[in-house]
């Protein structure tokens, strides 16, 4: 897995590519929480090229959401493929996280 990092104005767009699982969740956690610790307040996660996520990956998403909320920041997820979306759904995360169909909508939502 790699995480592509782009900036759109005040928003940081993070795109994990490939698999986000127990084998690399530690690395993802370090990258993502590192960005929040550096002061990023608005983050969009683009899941368009994420093939697979396990509970280890969801754990990182929840940690990011907690940190951002505590610091008054915001995150929006977008472009989830159906099987990824189902994992978020059975986790109960769709009701606590903001999810948009496209990156454009996510950027509008977070901005």
């Amino acid at each position: 897995m790699t995480i592509e990092i782009e900036r759109a104005g005040e928003v940081l767009v993070l795109s994990p590519v490939g698999r986000l699982d127990s084998n690399n969740a530690g690395e993802a956690e370090k990258t993502i929480l590192g960005k929040i610790a550096e002061g990023e307040m608005k983050i969009v996660f683009d899941f368009g090229r994420l093939d697979y996520i396990s509970s280890a990956g969801l754990r990182v998403m929840l940690m990011a959401a907690k940190r951002l909320k505590q610091g008054g920041g915001k995150m929006v997820l977008c472009a989830m493929r159906d099987h990824i979306r189902e994992v978020f759904e059975i986790s109960g995360f769709l009701s606590i996280l903001t999810v948009c169909p496209t990156r454009d909508e996510a950027l509008a939502q977070v901005g």
């Binding site: 396990s54 509970s55 280890a56 969801l58 754990r59 907690k66 986790s91 606590i96």
Partner: peptide
Amino acid sequence: EPDLDLGIDERPIGGLGVHFVKK
């Protein structure tokens, strides 16, 4: 069993893996 109705602040980190298996 995880409590799926908790908010972001209350929701504990982890505990979802076995829940997925059952689902």
